[in-house]
Amino acid sequence: MVTQMIKQIEFDVSQAAVSGLDSIMLAAKYTHIFVVMYPFVDGNGRLCRLILNSMLLKSGCFIVCLGEDSDGKDRHDYIEIALGASTLDS
């Protein structure tokens, strides 16, 4: 499954320059795919953020900082969004 995702990322990134795919949309797509395929409810936040930010930086965008607030609200919101999105894939 991961090998297939990597091949699809490579294809989409190569096509992004030609077709004008939105870099933010592409990074969000693969972050979502990774979160959904990860077998545990808590997700894999560090690796997920690494995928997101490396794709954004590679395309000349910016770094997204998630989980910086001390009360944990960002993390809670992130998990709620990820869980809600994963139910759409079912």
Rank of each mutant, 00 (worst) to 15 (best):
M1Q: 08
V2T: 13
V2D: 11
T3Q: 09
T3R: 06
Q4Y: 04
M5E: 01
M5C: 01
M5I: 02
I6W: 10
I6V: 14
K7Y: 05
K7S: 14
K7R: 12
Q8W: 06
Q8P: 01
I9G: 05
I9Y: 02
E10G: 05
F11D: 14
F11V: 11
F11C: 09
D12W: 00
D12K: 03
V13C: 08
S14R: 04
Q15S: 05
Q15L: 06
Q15H: 05
Q15R: 05
A16L: 04
A17W: 04
A17G: 08
V18D: 08
V18Y: 06
S19I: 03
S19W: 14
G20Y: 04
G20T: 11
G20H: 04
G20S: 05
G20N: 06
L21Q: 02
D22E: 03
D22S: 11
S23M: 10
S23N: 12
S23V: 10
S23E: 12
L26V: 01
A27M: 03
A27Q: 00
A28N: 15
A28K: 11
K29I: 06
K29F: 05
Y30F: 15
Y30I: 05
I33R: 07
I33H: 03
I33D: 04
F34E: 01
F34K: 02
F34S: 01
V35F: 07
V35A: 15
V35T: 10
V36S: 15
M37N: 10
M37R: 10
M37S: 09
Y38F: 15
Y38G: 01
Y38T: 09
P39E: 01
P39D: 03
P39R: 05
P39Q: 06
F40L: 13
V41C: 13
V41Y: 15
D42I: 01
G43V: 02
G43S: 10
G43Q: 03
N44I: 09
R46T: 14
R46L: 13
C48K: 06
C48S: 15
C48Y: 02
C48V: 09
R49W: 03
R49A: 14
L50A: 13
I51P: 06
I51C: 05
L52N: 01
L52C: 05
L52T: 00
L52H: 00
S54I: 04
S54C: 11
S54K: 12
M55N: 00
L56M: 12
K58L: 07
K58D: 04
K58C: 03
S59T: 02
G60N: 00
G60A: 04
G60M: 03
C61Y: 03
C61E: 03
F62S: 07
I63P: 01
I63E: 06
I63T: 12
C65N: 12
C65K: 10
C65I: 11
L66N: 11
E68W: 06
E68I: 12
E68G: 15
E68F: 07
D69N: 13
S70M: 12
S70R: 13
S70L: 15
D71L: 11
D71G: 07
G72A: 12
G72W: 02
K73I: 10
K73H: 08
R75I: 14
R75G: 13
R75E: 13
H76Q: 15
Y78C: 14
Y78Q: 13
I81D: 06
A82C: 14
A82R: 08
A82V: 07
A82S: 13
L83W: 09
G84N: 15
G84C: 10
A85Y: 07
A85D: 09
S86L: 10
S86Y: 02
T87Q: 14
L88N: 09
L88I: 09
D89V: 11
D89I: 05
